[in-house]
Design a protein around this nucleic acid. Structure first.
Lengths: 350, 350
DNA sequence: TAAAATAATACAAACGTTTGTATTATTATA
DNA sequence: TATAATAATACAAACGTTTGTATTATTTTA
């Protein structure tokens, strides 16, 4: 005794009119008489009619769904980016379907392939850690499915839009901030060297030192290698504990590294920010709650998502013939000062 | 010059066989000769055939998508729950479509209605803060769309499965833990009183005190009212600062409250956990990183999501006729001991 | 008041699959 | 070698819409 859904045909039969007319009436198409439209609307309401989205999609060739692939669910940055995407998408009548690549190239490719089956109109992707080739993305683009890439981009992919931040500038500003406040022994904790973002953040660090004629001390530089969070703590505390010289500032390439570093440094007896200042990267959004709180380079995560959605929907709405030039958007970061740099209260934009 | 997708018909025409045979060959249906199957498979591969998910769904009446509605994106609990849902769903060939109700009843209802359009096979819902009536959910159930509710359930809804934790037992255990460790002046910071979960957590607090003959001191009890996070900090520090008696323990109904309380208490000069022990509720998953770290009642968020997905998929897979009895699953919480209760190292299950 | 113009509606194909039934080809049986 | 049994395939309807074109009903015009 499964209740069958009410469909156009049911309404049509009840009113003794054709399906086409019912369809058009519900669309408020001027081709149907006002009286008929109202009759249909009333009957649809009375019968509890709900349009079948799947049938609509098949007929129209559009699903109004955007596929989103992120490297992981449990990073505030991605959640915020998804919120941004969702925000823009919803207000433009799109839903989003999120999958995680679990930072695996294979999963990423699988997810893309599953999106190729016509369930989504377009794709927003943040490449995973170990994505080094881009054929899988190009293959999607070849099928003329619009793609926008955001964050963690190693390499531009032709035919896709890109949304990024200025990683080198961002870390440059953070390190310069240290220097301008008299810090000289500035440690650097980076991420795996293969990632473009970490390279760029490292670059910014080096450039800031260079500009201000501070010699580069290799001992002060560490690149965290583990993808697995479990080991980050050990790696970072290991690095900090075996330093022969005391740093007076640390710049870390993620907020998490910053927090872990802070934890270790406190245990080692450092006073924050008097003995050592710390700036992380990313803005977990929670850094604020804890004592001491962590300063950071804030990525405009929500904005990045929003922008990505905007670019994608622009592509989706373009007419068949016109071909929109592909864009690379770089969004601005800014320094958020909390306890770990609060020797001077400022909040400036890069 | 839009490239048309390859479809069954294209393969069929190329090989001079019928669409039905191609369809069955790809399904590895034994009705088609092995030689034919291989021919088809090869051709499909060569032509880059991708099945059209929408057409499949229309034909089969199943989308293999689960709709998920959570109150907000930016709470680790929900993210973890979604991960749990996703984990189970994916391994059973379902995708998930997440929407946020932004803790608004109206958005929640809108989301449900949009799910009613046949895009999802079933729905997993965590009711929003201000959901007080349930007609919108019943209406979905009436249409025989399977529904599973999890967390924040004010009231059981007939015809839906439920996944919960034992809120009263959980807070009871936390408070009893304080008492067994010699704490007597135990403050309570709850959430808005209208929510069942907060009522239950409050109940557990009261019961623990009662069981151990500790008089209830109204001054030690505070119910945080704000939905907006911005004001929680002020509310909580306001409460703590105007206490006439010094508490030696605080139980808070969320982790965030716990962190905020800890921040204030440290500023007030309390030593943690010597002067005051704190237990939060929820396990942000980050409480660990900060100094001092926050002990908490850990909700099995991932497990809850997983269980919800399991129940839903069970409903979806049941045959047309059989009607599965609806279930209420209560999952166990456990205490996670960190710095804020580390006067004694244990980690027991409730 | 009949023809022309237009408004309103009906018909039917299309979207790309699946699947029950009909048909044809092949093999087995007598 | 004709006939039955079975294997392989083809046909066509169905899923629930949308939309171009054909048809019918109504109004306008002469």
């Amino acid at each position: 005794m499964k209740k069958r859904r009410v469909k156009l045909e049911d309404i049509a039969r009840k009113l003794n009119i054709s399906i086409a007319t019912v369809s058009r009436a519900l669309d408020k198409n001027p081709r149907v008489k006002l009286a008929t439209r109202e009759k249909v609307l009333k009957m649809a309401q009375a019968m509890g009619y709900m349009p079948n989205q799947i049938a609509k999609s098949l007929s129209s060739g559009k699903t109004n769904i955007i596929g989103v692939i992120i490297p992981r669910y449990d990073e505030p940055f991605f959640i915020e980016a998804c919120r941004g995407i969702d925000h823009y998408a919803r207000s433009h009548n799109y839903k989003i379907l999120i999958s995680s690549s679990r930072n695996s190239f294979d999963f990423e490719r699988e997810n893309l392939i599953s999106f190729e089956r016509g369930l989504v109109d377009g794709i927003i992707l943040c490449p995973s850690h170990d994505t080094e080739t881009f054929a899988h993305i190009r293959s999607i683009i070849d099928k003329e499915i619009p793609v926008v890439l955001f964050d963690n981009i190693r390499e531009m992919v032709k035919g896709a839009d890109h949304v990024l931040i200025n990683d080198d500038k961002a870390s440059f500003s953070a390190v310069e901030f240290f220097i301008k406040n008299g810090r000289k022994n500035i440690a650097f904790i980076g991420g795996i060297k293969e990632k473009k973002v970490f390279q760029d953040r490292y670059k910014g660090y080096l450039e800031a030192l260079k500009k201000h004629n501070i010699p580069i001390d290799k001992e002060m530089i560490f690149h965290c290698n583990s993808i697995d969070r479990e080991f980050e703590d050990d790696e970072i505390s290991g690095f900090l504990k075996k330093l022969s010289k005391k740093p007076d500032a640390v710049f870390t390439c993620t907020d998490n590294y910053g927090l872990l570093a802070m934890k270790t440094l406190i245990k080692m007896g450092y006073k924050i920010p008097e003995d050592i200042a710390i700036i992380g990267f990313g803005d977990l959004g929670l850094g604020d709650v804890f004592v001491p709180s962590l300063s950071c380079v804030a990525q405009p995560s929500f904005e990045m998502g929003k922008k990505a959605a905007e670019l994608l929907i622009d592509q989706l709405n373009k007419s068949e013939e016109e071909t929109l030039p592909k864009k690379v958007i770089k969004l601005k970061t800014h320094l958020v000062h909390r306890d770990s740099t609060r020797f001077k209260k400022v909040n400036f934009h890069i």
